[in-house]
């Protein structure tokens, strides 16, 4: 039995040696799939996701004739978790994440520019280690930028938790940023996404119980994390732009 999250209070160190307000290492690349209109590969710690965007292409607009439809597909590889497990199409958790991503980007992309067309976002999870929804949102943002689809600003996401579980109700609990799997299993946490590093929250998902008093701190840390993520993603995009310019592919 390795140590668990209760050891945080001993030296203010988390299970993987981070402080409360530290992100895991985030690395990302864009234009990883030449065949797609836009693509990205993102790692947040050991969570690894691949995103490809196709479109906007003809057809669609079934719901609203004046706008493009956004279709999201999410495939979680059987080998991505600790146990080898097939995640079926009808999985509730998957469809919930799909609909979150879909509605988020429906309100951020200028879909009105592409009436009666569809934008396909296809996501593949290669490895899971917590903050999965946040990683999916970040990867989608990068791929959509790569595809050149106009959008209001970056959607950047991160998770925030609290060092004490609901039942233990420790007064001096610290908020935590960017949780990994073992922390997610033990602690209350939320996923938050903001628009362009501002305080505009566009996604907020929480499925665990936490004392209402702690929520504010968690949210502040999460939003702050989103800002940091935005900087990292922005660097990735600019770096990529420079490279493209240099290679003269434009």
């Amino acid at each position: 039995m390795p140590l668990d999250t209760s050891s945080y209070s001993l030296a203010l160190l988390r299970l993987d040696g981070r402080r409360w307000n530290e992100l895991r290492r985030i690395t990302a690349q864009i234009s990883t799939m030449p065949s797609a209109d836009g693509s990205s590969y993102l790692e947040m710690g050991n969570t690894k996701v691949l995103c490809t965007v196709t479109g906007p292409c003809e057809g669609g607009g079934t719901r609203d004739r004046d706008r493009a439809d956004i279709r999201v597909e999410l495939a979680i590889a059987g080998f991505s978790g600790v146990d080898r497990k097939r995640v079926g199409r009808g999985d509730k958790r998957v469809s919930e994440m799909v609909s979150t991503i879909q509605s988020t980007f429906a309100s951020t992309l200028f879909t009105n520019l592409y009436p009666q067309s569809t934008i396909h976002i296809s996501l593949h999870v290669l490895s899971q280690d917590g903050s999965l929804l946040a990683a999916l949102l970040n990867a989608s943002t990068l791929a959509l930028i790569d595809a050149g689809i106009p959008m209001r600003d970056y959607i950047t996401a991160s998770t925030a938790g609290s060092t004490s579980s609901y039942s233990s109700n420790d007064e001096s609990a610290d908020p935590l940023l960017d949780l990994n799997t073992s922390e997610e299993q033990e602690l209350p946490f939320l996923t938050v996404a903001t628009l362009g590093g501002s305080d505009q929250v566009s996604v907020l998902v929480m499925e665990t119980r936490v004392q209402a008093g702690r929520l504010e701190g968690m949210l502040a840390v999460g939003v702050d994390g989103c800002k940091q993520v935005r900087e990292i993603l922005d660097d990735v995009v600019r770096e990529h732009g420079k490279e493209v310019l240099k290679s003269g592919r434009l």
Partner: peptide, 8 residues
């Protein structure tokens, strides 16, 4: 189970 954890 094989568990992989990051260490910072």
């Amino acid at each position: 189970q094989k568990i992989v954890r990051e260490l910072y």
